[in-house]
């Protein structure tokens, strides 16, 4: 048990380090796209440690407690995440729904803390974040439902990945092309990448939920954000890209997915919040349901 917990914490730490490095590298890549030199690849580490070295302000106990709950919830979620087929802390318990809902604990903690700061912009940001969540989550879950049904009924993330590695089975992004597109769009929404970046919107609502944070609280939220991105991208890799047999493959896939999303996002402007909702409930939902019907009832899977 203790070993498992340590492995789990290791996964969380790995996710943090990986995503923070990836974040820095991607800042560099986006900078090159914009003809700039860009920061050092370890810039994100510097940023986070700098935040920890500053003296922050606190708006009362709920402000601090929410941050702790947020980071705690996310660390707990990451502990269940399989990295490769072998690196997994709690085998058999990596249920897809745990990720979706345990992630929500962290989000709830952050939302609570943000609202507890007493700043109206923070509450607006939380409102937008939740609304965006309502938008992207439903199509995504329908696609995942299709996947679970197709694998013959397993919602274990690592087993879904293993299913795709069996000879004769395609990766689900190929097997379910419509669903794959929906998943990519939803992933952009989950990560808060550009067209769906409505709830951060620095120029509009002063970075939304994060408006009152500085110093260590902001640092913890950054750590939380990095781990969240790790979880979401990993989920995508395991569910749609056939998982990873070895660490090298995993790193490669991770890099490709994250970079591709960043490149897409670097050429987009921001949606308004109601546009986000309408967008997701128009095409992605339609595509997801179509995909579910043709895959489950008609059995048309590539």
């Amino acid at each position: 048990m203790v070993v498992n917990i340590l492995v789990g914490l290791g996964v969380a730490l790995f996710g943090f380090v990986l995503q923070t490095a990836m974040g820095g590298i991607n800042r560099k890549i986006v900078a090159r796209v914009q003809k700039r030199i860009g920061p050092k690849w370890y810039q994100e580490f510097i940023d986070i440690f700098k935040l920890f070295s500053k003296r922050s302000v606190s708006h009362g106990w709920i402000f601090d407690f929410g941050v702790i709950m947020a980071l705690g919830g996310i660390i707990a979620t990451a502990m269940f995440m399989p990295v490769t087929a072998n690196i997994i802390a709690f085998e058999g318990y990596d249920n897809f729904f745990i990720f979706v809902y345990l992630l929500a604990v962290g989000m709830l903690g952050m939302a609570m803390s943000a609202s507890g700061s007493g700043n109206p912009l923070a509450s607006i940001g939380v409102m937008r974040a939740l609304t965006t969540m309502l938008a992207y989550e439903v199509p995504f879950m329908i696609v995942v439902m299709t996947i679970i049904k197709l694998t013959g009924g397993t919602s274990s993330v690592s087993e879904i990945a293993a299913f795709q590695q069996i000879a004769g089975n395609n990766w689900f992004i190929i097997a379910l092309p419509l669903g794959g597109i929906v998943a990519i769009i939803s992933l952009m929404g989950m990560l808060g990448k550009k067209p769906f970046e409505t709830y951060i919107a620095p120029a509009e609502i002063a970075s939304g939920p994060m408006v009152e944070y500085g110093g260590k609280q902001l640092g913890m939220l950054f750590v939380m954000h990095e781990i969240t991105v790790f979880i979401e991208v990993s989920l995508f890799i395991h569910l749609f890209l056939g998982g990873a047999a070895t660490l090298g493959v995993y790193l490669l896939k991770y890099f490709l997915v994250y970079t591709a999303l960043n490149l897409i996002s670097s050429v987009y402007a921001r949606f308004k919040i109601d546009q986000v909702v309408v967008f997701f409930y128009k095409w992605p939902l339609f595509m997801a349901v179509t995909q579910a019907i043709i895959a489950i009832y008609l059995g048309w899977v590539i």
Binding site: I5, I68, G72, I75, A76
Partner: peptide, 20 residues
């Protein structure tokens, strides 16, 4: 595990400077 996560987060929280 949620408890473990919160505990780790709490450790991180108290390690650093007290807030104003």
């Amino acid at each position: 595990m949620f408890g473990v996560g919160v505990f780790v987060a709490f450790l991180i929280f108290i390690t650093f400077k007290k807030s104003k």
